[in-house]
Design a protein around this nucleic acid. Structure first.
Lengths: 335, 335
DNA sequence: ATGAAAGCGCTAACAC
DNA sequence: GTGTTAGCGCTTTCAT
């Protein structure tokens, strides 16, 4: 059996309270006593039982993190930063995947919240409607990452980049390059940021006096395969004589789209230009390098960790409950 | 305050023991009483406190998983399967990254083990020496994934594929294609499987009567950039008139190597052929598609979860403590 | 400056 | 079948 605090106390001939105090340095303990305790701890190889501590303190020092799919580089880069930052503060990360399924997301989140196993939640790109989300997390500390704010309840904080304006950068670039036709392969409708991107792109296009009949819009899940097939169907119904500028709303789908274009034997960026979104680490390795909008994954990850701990401390150093980051275009070879 | 089991008991006018029994169905309880309890639970919105349960049962229902870097697709694919399988059994996954650093790996693992916060550990591709690993995990249930067995202690189980024979497949293929020179960009020396791959490759090459002066060996970390730069230095000291078959010991590095070859304007697979290892999901999307050895990530992930739970149950349905999986060559365009 | 003791919310003997 | 009770290993008043 593992030694307990009681064992240490007995060996050092002191009370458990005193031992507890030296472990966490929470009260002054005289030097001789402290030394006796320290050496008893060492002798027994004592390590505090974190579960017992959790029960007593009503804190688990664990944060639940739910992402759609850890296999997607966009999410894994965020998670890595979160874990790294959390670890520094003595917190651990419990990971769950929602597999892009709304109901699974719901189940996972609510069991986190009602199970009492985590102190707070970080939800990355959740797809639940804002109503269900609100109802579910009421009273529980949550930070929502990569989704626009929909509430100013100070119990949760939003961390996201301005996807609408990120997407308008795309439109600017595409028209400046004088493409004759435009297309957008947008993300699923239930993803708020997918809509923000589509709107930002579309609005800016019409602001540039592009007539609507020169713009085609479709939707695809954030995967290589969907990007590939969606691009194929766009291409098959397009006039090959006209140059086409397309905005694919995630790098991973843009990769698929890129391959579709190459397979058709079209030139990039002359015949068709592609701009992605996110700037995942692989974007620069593609052929040609993928022009894209930089989504600040690292910053989002770090901030998520910071904010979730602030939330727990009641530290309202953050006066507002939403942090919106900037985005920028990184130009490579696909346009 | 959250309602407790005691609250439910009081409301239903029964003892806490009975409530506990209906919650977990652990003893027969008469129908009327059961119904009373169930409705009291619903009325109060009761959810068991998992921390208290953990303390009492001395089980946390959590498994620690440590990977070098969740951002690496090879690891994220494994982790995804582990999480998925674990979730089905009511276990949660605590994720840690060692960042490919041995000392960090040591710290993370030992704090998992001594902290009492997890029931077992799954270590993916650990880099600690077998001596330190053994010393550290003694008496703690651990499954070690993607690393050859080094002990038959039944307290831990090894799950890995036979990298030595996987690598000999590479040699077979490369000589069958009649390359004149051969190279291996092996992984770090501290990674046992990296050595297994190198040896399997090398041994088979000499078995094919390839003289040793036609083989060059270097090492690189499992990253795109290292694969790229290592390939560059191989190329710069190679005779361009002779065709070169190279084995890059991970897909991610093979990708980098591939780009280096293309940048030099060499033809693939005529001038230089490349075979990777792992078959990460992106391998097929490269140009040309990456020929590689399939490493059964999904199977490894699933088995890890299965085995770790068997270990906890003392279920010795697994009679042996090591499971070695097969690997196969998947042929695409780089050779 | 240190100790005694009362729980945190649950489970598991053991009674009845 | 159901209830009583003693902890699991810790933290935290409140005494001394």
């Amino acid at each position: 059996m593992r030694p307990t605090l009681k064992d240490v106390a007995k060996l050092a001939s002191v009370s458990t309270a005193t031992v507890s105090n030296v472990i966490r340095n929470t009260k002054f303990v005289s030097e001789p006593v402290k030394q006796r305790i320290l050496s008893s701890m060492k002798e027994l190889g004592y390590e505090p039982n974190i579960i017992a501590r959790s029960l007593k303190m009503n804190k688990t020092f664990k944060i639940g993190v739910v992402v759609p799919d850890i296999t997607n580089p966009f999410f894994s880069e965020i998670v890595k930063e979160v874990e790294n930052s959390l670890e520094k503060e003595g917190y651990q990360l419990i990971l769950s995947n929602s597999h892009y399924e709304v109901e699974r997301e719901y189940l996972v989140c609510s069991s986190f919240i009602s199970g009492g196993g985590v102190d707070a939640l970080i939800l990355v790109a959740p797809r639940l409607s804002s109503e269900r989300l609100m109802a579910m997390i009421m009273g529980f500390p949550v930070v929502i990452v990569d989704r626009p704010s929909f509430s100013d309840d100070e119990n949760f904080v939003f961390i996201f980049s301005d996807n609408y304006s990120g997407a308008s950068l795309v439109a600017d670039k595409l028209v400046s390059k004088k493409y004759e036709k435009f297309a957008c392969i947008a993300g699923p409708e239930m993803v708020p940021n997918a809509n923000a991107r589509l709107e930002g792109f579309y609005d800016r296009l019409v602001a540039h006096n592009i007539s609507e009949d020169r713009i085609t819009v479709t939707r695809a899940e954030f995967t290589f395969d969907k990007g590939f097939s969606e691009m194929n169907s766009i291409l098959s119904s397009a006039d090959p004589a006209e140059s086409l500028g397309v905005f694919v709303c995630s790098d991973i789908a843009a990769w698929g789209a890129l391959e579709a274009v190459k397979e058709k034997g079209l030139r990039i960026p002359e015949d068709v230009g592609i701009i992605g979104y996110d700037d995942i680490s692989f974007a620069k390795y593609l052929h040609p390098g993928l022009t894209t909008i930089k989504n600040p994954m690292i910053e989002m990850g770090k901030l998520s960790a910071t904010c979730v701990l602030d939330l727990l401390r009641g530290d309202s150093a953050i006066t507002c409950n939403s942090i919106v980051l900037g985005s920028s275009l990184v130009e490579r070879g696909t346009i």
